[in-house]
Simulated assay, not measured.
Amino acid sequence: MAYYGNLALRPERKPQETQRPEKEREKVVRRRSIPIGEKLLYLLTVAVCAVVAGLIIYRYAEIYQMNRQIQEMNRQYEQTTGQMKELQREVERLSDPKRIIDEATNKLGMVPLDPNQGITVGEGGKAIAMNTKK
């Protein structure tokens, strides 16, 4: 039969049994494993790197926390300074002599003191204005 590229028509070949002599067998190359001491050294190196990374992250966390506290204190300082300025303006407004005289005469019913009169303290701790010039 002629073979024209059709595999169905191709005659089968018998497998050739070729045994190699034992001397010619391929040598199996075994890789030596890493010694235990070297493995422990690698493990120790990885552990040290992990500890150093942990310390660095811990320090960054502390720095972040301190920055937050500084910002909070600055905000409180700004707020307290604003309140202090507002209270200072209130003190200046309330300690105005004209306002004090108006409050005393209008709301409390006090009268201005005549320079010709003197003040003496009577019974019960009340002040009494009296004429000292005659």
Rank of each mutant, 00 (worst) to 15 (best):
L43F: 08
R20Y: 07
Q83K: 15
D114S: 00
R59E: 14
Q69A: 09
Q19R: 11
R89E: 13
R20N: 09
I100A: 03
P35S: 11
I34N: 04
E86K: 02
T80Y: 07
K98C: 00
T18M: 09
Q71G: 12
V28L: 15
I101Y: 11
I34G: 01
N67E: 07
K98D: 05
P112S: 05
I34Y: 04
T80C: 06
E26W: 10
R25P: 00
I101A: 10
E90A: 15
P21H: 13
Q69V: 04
I128N: 00
R68M: 08
I70G: 05
K126T: 02
E17C: 04
E17S: 14
G82N: 07
E17Q: 15
N67V: 05
V28S: 12
G82F: 04
L87C: 01
S33M: 07
N116K: 14
V46A: 15
K23R: 06
I100E: 03
S95K: 14
R75S: 11
V91H: 01
Y58A: 09
K27L: 12
T120W: 06
A53C: 03
N67G: 08
A104L: 03
A53K: 01
L94N: 04
E123D: 15
Y60K: 10
Q19I: 05
D102L: 12
L94C: 04
D102S: 06
G118F: 03
S33T: 15
I128G: 00
S33L: 09
Q79N: 12
E90F: 03
E22Y: 05
L40P: 01
I63Y: 04
M66L: 14
I57M: 07
A50N: 05
I57G: 08
Q117W: 07
Q88T: 10
G109E: 00
V29N: 10
D114M: 00
I101R: 14
V28Y: 04
M66W: 10
T105D: 01
A53E: 01
R25I: 00
P21E: 11
P97H: 02
